[in-house]
Amino acid sequence: MSIKVLVVDDSSFFRRRVSDIINAAPRLEVIDVAVNGKEAVEKALSLKPDVITMDIEMPVMDGITAVREIMGKRPTPILMFSSLTHEGAKATLDALEAGALDFLPKKFEDIARNKDEAVSLLQQRVQQIASRRAFMRRPLTPPRPVAKVADSSITLGVKPRIATDTPARFRASGKSYQLTAIGTSTGGPVALQQILTKLPANYPHPIVLIQHMPATFTAAFAARLNTLCQIGVKEAADGDVLKPGVAYLAPGGMQMMIEGRPGSAKIRIIDGGERMNYKPCVDVTFGSAAKVYQDKVLSMVLTGMGADGREGARMLKNAGATIWAQDEESCVVYGMPQAVTKAGLSTESLPLDRIAERILVELKRQ
């Protein structure tokens, strides 16, 4: 059975280009197109597509509003097309918050070395998110921007409240840590927001974040997280000294490494590298963290396509560090966490909505 796709864009040229690429895949079929968000909502309800590709800027109704309406009425996997600009980044993040699962740049050459690679990438993304139909969620209700306070009412000593329908209780391992490291890709922006907004301002050590994301997106994403979180969040810069209670997001298109000693370690930002598939790469940052912090790293691999993070997690594991993976059910794409889990590197497989709780339990004695 083919995967039914609705293509939404106000440009006839782009609609035709996307439709031709999708229809060229054996398992994919474009069942219709829409020229604006209002028409997209109507056709999503009447045609019941398996996947929708959605532009952001359109007349009558924009793509973000359309995503929110579709997710409220008939949740459907949605792939956004975005411009790689600062404004495009903010709009794309709004769309992901509204319920879209993934995004690609409208200029395919920005993410692919040649036409064949671009075609394959789009087809692969559509098929990947189609498999997450049962996963579909309602739009996030984002937390309100917070003022940074030193004496947050949320403290590591407070036992997290556990819902009555989730009887399992976590126990701290008794290990001590000096760094938290999180790697993710597809579905990561929403996952990171859900976790980081639950951490207190007095978080006891630095956090490094590696999210597969274009260069123009990471500054906007870090700024958004910083307004929503009690901890500080910033796009990492070369020479940053790692400080407790601050999360450092690896800049897109580059590689983030850690050097020095615990307590005075610094971030090094280096060229992404022509041969590297991921810029930033989870393996690179995890590997450098293993060298500096040894067994004092609490690391997590979240939702994402591929296997980035597996070899870095292996280095962390060999150093005695702790590795957790997001569970399959809560992932947008169960690729990166699956790779780590199948390799026997993770000690726990956790649902997204309980990862922050698990972190606080693990660190409550520090």
Rank of each mutant, 00 (worst) to 15 (best):
A150D: 13
S330P: 11
K243W: 08
A313D: 00
S299M: 02
L199C: 00
E117C: 05
V8P: 03
E259T: 15
S288M: 01
E69Q: 14
A134C: 08
A34M: 03
L242H: 10
A215Q: 10
M336R: 14
G174Q: 10
P105G: 13
Q127M: 11
M58W: 00
P280S: 04
A24S: 15
K364C: 12
D102Q: 06
D165Q: 09
L363V: 12
T227N: 12
V67C: 05
V361S: 03
M276F: 07
I3F: 08
I22A: 07
K198W: 12
V282A: 03
S11F: 01
K364G: 04
L93E: 14
V119M: 12
F13A: 11
I111A: 14
L156T: 07
V67E: 07
I78H: 03
S131E: 12
A339K: 01
H205S: 04
P280I: 00
G306W: 00
Q194C: 11
R314L: 03
V8L: 06
E235I: 11
A339R: 04
G306S: 01
L28V: 05
G99A: 05
V340L: 03
L104Q: 05
V126K: 03
L140W: 03
V340N: 11
F13K: 09
Q194Y: 00
V33L: 07
L121G: 03
D295P: 09
K364F: 14
S46L: 08
K73C: 09
I70C: 02
M54W: 01
S2D: 05
L96S: 12
K175Y: 10
T141I: 10
M256H: 10
R161G: 05
W324H: 01
E274K: 08
I269V: 13
L84K: 06
Y334N: 10
K107N: 15
T164I: 15
N318E: 09
R133K: 08
V35Y: 02
R144D: 00
T166Q: 13
S152W: 15
R17A: 13
T92F: 00
T216E: 01
L352P: 08
A265Y: 02
V30W: 06
L96W: 03
K234F: 01
A34F: 02
I129S: 08
V35G: 15
K4Q: 11
A321P: 04
A25I: 12
